[in-house]
Amino acid sequence: MTIPIRPLTVTINGRQHGPMDVPEGLMMIDVLHEMLGLTGSRLGCGIGICHACVVIWDRDDQTSEEVRTCITGAGFFDGKRIRTIEGTAQTDERGEIVALSPVQQAFLDQFSFQCGYCTPGFVNAATVLVERLKRAPVPRGEVQATVAAALETHICRCTGYVRYYQAVRDVILTTPGLTRDGT
């Protein structure tokens, strides 16, 4: 049996990968794990429900959104720019982490995660939310509902969600420009 091959070029965490030959029909998570050594995105359910596998897709219109790599084929990402959990923290020229992102730092400070399996997905979801609020702030009174809506699809089995949600809420409330007055 021969497996058809398709070319893929994708920019991940600011670095272009490819063009490379990818067996047609591989999901993006397989490419990240098996071909690129980026194993931080987690396979949780494989059917697009738990959202442990989401990466951030940076669209040309400067918006960003989550994409589930377990059910999205590699082909979808051809020519696109994405961020994975490996690219979230700031690193120096040697690749050493010098600063965590505000979301990552808040998750650490607030003991948000336990086993950590769902954490990359939560970091990405919260990052996308923060970026959205930069473009379109919400009234302070709506922050909790906004956080809940943005994270609802992410499954966590360990934490009961409370410390994740609280950390994201606090990041939003303490970052200038993400909220406006009102309820």
Binding site: G44, I47, I49, L151, E152, I155, G160, Y161, V162, Y165
Partner: peptide, 19 residues
């Protein structure tokens, strides 16, 4: 069987802000 039929509690199921 997968999570489509086995419902693991979500944020909206646990009174996340009110516990």
């Amino acid at each position: 069987w997968n999570f489509n039929r086995y419902h693991v509690p979500r944020g909206s199921d646990v009174a996340v802000w009110d516990q």
